[in-house]
């Protein structure tokens, strides 16, 4: 499986282009001179100590956070103050959150069809068919009429992934998707993500699952203090880290 992934070609087409991007929270310089290009079909894992700005970075990609300097171009659309551009990017980019953020007052099916109905203006029948398709893909079609509170954490996260997929996104962002899960549930979510990767989805994933990074990613980015410290192929990154900070981080995370 992993071998199949490695052989998959990455196209030359640019999916995300970030140039000289800076962001401050008040006076705190949270992202410093970020330059990054993501090709279509790339699977990128971002890791780093907590507070290093990795979540903020991917939240900038669909403008849940606003950047103050530099340029972010997603799928040919620059993120500016223009609401139309923001709407366009958000409907093309799916996002999965650490705490799932499913809508507790809606059933699973309603959670999945909500955005297609109201944002994409898809007919209800079609939206439901798509929803069921993705629900079977994450292997929980039988839960369609339950409420999120009745599902386990792992199931909820898979629903959240399916919810994003229903918008037929071209890019998926994962913000620590397994951090809030019990150990036995992590695998079912990771399996879903690997399956997604095999289908050629462009993915940016903030995670501490180093096994996942080694198996799936074609690039690992290490961030510290709001800047990109090192990026490399997974094999090189884990076996032969260049920067001292990376070495320290890896020794802490893999040391036991």
């Amino acid at each position: 499986m992993a071998e199949a992934l490695k052989k998959m070609t990455v196209s030359d087409e640019v999916a995300i282009q970030i140039t000289a991007m800076n962001k401050w929270y008040g006076t705190f310089h949270v992202l410093r001179d970020i330059n990054m290009t993501v090709q279509r079909g790339e699977r990128i894992v971002i890791c780093g100590p907590s507070g290093s700005g990795k979540s903020t970075l991917i939240r900038c990609v669909n403008r849940l956070e606003e950047h103050q300097q530099g340029q972010i171009i997603v799928d040919g659309t620059e993120l500016t103050n223009d609401l139309k551009n923001i709407d366009k990017v958000r409907s093309e980019v799916g996002m999965v959150f650490q705490h799932f953020n499913l809508f507790p007052h809606l059933t699973i099916l309603e959670n999945l069809t909500l955005a297609p109905l109201w944002v994409r203006k898809v007919p209800k029948r079609e939206a439901e068919e798509t929803a069921m398709h993705f629900l079977s893909k994450v292997k929980i079609p039988e839960q369609a009429h339950k409420y999120p509170g009745q599902l386990s954490g792992g199931q909820q996260q898979r629903v959240a992934i399916a919810r994003s997929l229903c918008m037929k996104p071209r890019i998926m962002l994962f913000d620590e998707p397994t951090s809030a899960l019990d150990p036995e549930m992590i695998k079912e979510v990771l399996d879903t993500m690997i399956q997604l990767a095999e289908e050629g989805m462009t993915m940016i994933c903030v995670t501490h699952e180093m096994g996942f990074a080694q198996a799936v990613a074609n690039r690992v980015i290490f961030m510290d203090q709001g800047q990109i410290v090192e990026q490399n192929e997974p094999k090189e990154f884990f076996n032969n880290p260049k920067s001292d900070r990376t070495k320290l981080f890896l020794s802490q995370i893999l040391g036991h």
């Binding site: 409907s91 980019v93 959150f97 918008m167």
Partner: peptide, 23 residues
Amino acid sequence: LPRGQYEAADALGLDYWQAQRLI
């Protein structure tokens, strides 16, 4: 309501009034 509900609605591309009405 937790902040995540607003963020999820934003990330799905719902506008302000849609998010208010539906979520």
